[in-house]
Design a protein around this nucleic acid. Structure first.
Lengths: 195, 195
DNA sequence: GTCTATAATTCGATAGAC
DNA sequence: GTCTATCGAATTATAGAC
């Protein structure tokens, strides 16, 4: 054997804490998504993760640090330049819906951003670094005009998510996915290339 | 004088509590708008109103009752049927912006609705009783289709308010009012009468 | 009608045993 | 690395004096 004292070699010591950390972040996303920043408590998160509340503090320092870790987020926008120009709007909406329904990250971010300043800034930076540039590249417009259009697109897409997933307005819930992609996609398309 | 025992006649006894109640509700709207349902506390509301926290409880029973009173809201939609059809979308957006900037009621409602179930239901009922019917009348479409369009319009307008007044996304803040009315108005117009 | 005092919880955070 | 025990602060809500 490598060593009579046994145990893993020097590289990558398998600490159980890694699994614990992952469980905490997953539970945090869940709770922040369901109850917002203030509604989710260290205790409720620890309970959902099946561990002790003190561990959350040990690993993430405080509630702010935990949220910062839980709100790590990548929109994973696909390369829309490869698509036929006429399909870009619908593709964008479709991707956003996937991203909303895929996990709790965006829901957690939005629910928290409405009352928590740090979450709001995170939201601002996400749309500044991930949405804005992509719109600029796609539309080929000057920076200021592209930013304005990215803002309009964000307002439509975030509003759709707000009404559908957060406020759950019945008429918005009744829309089929295909219908949503088509109709909201047309709006995004217009913001991208027309008016 | 009318009576030797003095005091107002039977009708409309001028209780000072009326002014107090009004001050409480106004302060409550302010606080709910600024901090959401959980962030606004009975204490902070009482402090903003310049009265004792116990009075809030006396007049409104509990926090829920106070919010119900503070979230009383009328969109005050004007008669859009009198306008040239081509201007309806822009007029709707313009009216919403006025309503958002006029007082704290809508801000309080939205900030609270994201985490509080009662506020969310209030939001649902407002759009069911005030937005939906108006869209039905304007578009002249069957009920189901009109409801779908009202939902789409709500998603765009609430999304605009979310990005502008709550999340404060810089590109959305940079839009002038005229520009916002024109561009978002065109979207609302399309949801109303086209696709 | 208004306010003082306080009960009963609940939260974030810390100290320290194992 | 994990958990027990607990502190100090803040919250809603109540009881009752004035």
């Amino acid at each position: 054997m490598a060593a009579t004292t046994e145990g893993p070699p020097a590289a990558a010591p398998p600490r159980r804490s890694d699994a614990t950390r992952a469980a905490i972040v997953a539970a945090a996303r869940e709770q922040f998504a369901a109850a917002g920043y203030q509604g989710a408590t260290i205790r409720s998160i620890a309970a959902a993760a099946g561990i002790d509340p003190a561990l959350v503090m040990r690993y993430y320092g405080n509630k702010e640090g935990l949220f910062a870790a839980a709100a790590e987020f990548d929109l994973r926008l696909p390369d829309l330049g490869a698509l036929p120009r006429s399909q870009v709007g619908a593709a964008l909406v479709s991707h956003f819906l996937d991203r909303w329904e895929g996990d709790d990250a965006l829901m957690a971010l939005l629910r928290a951003a409405v009352t928590n300043p740090a979450a709001r800034q995170r939201m601002q930076s996400i749309f500044a670094t991930q949405v804005g540039p992509q719109v600029g590249k796609l539309s080929g417009l000057p920076r200021a005009e592209a930013a304005a259009r990215a803002g309009l697109i964000s307002s439509q897409i975030l509003g759709l998510a707000l009404c559908r997933y957060v406020l759950e307005l019945p008429p918005v819930l009744k829309l089929t996915r295909a219908d949503t992609v088509r109709r909201v996609g047309a709006t995004v398309q217009r913001y991208l290339f027309d008016a």
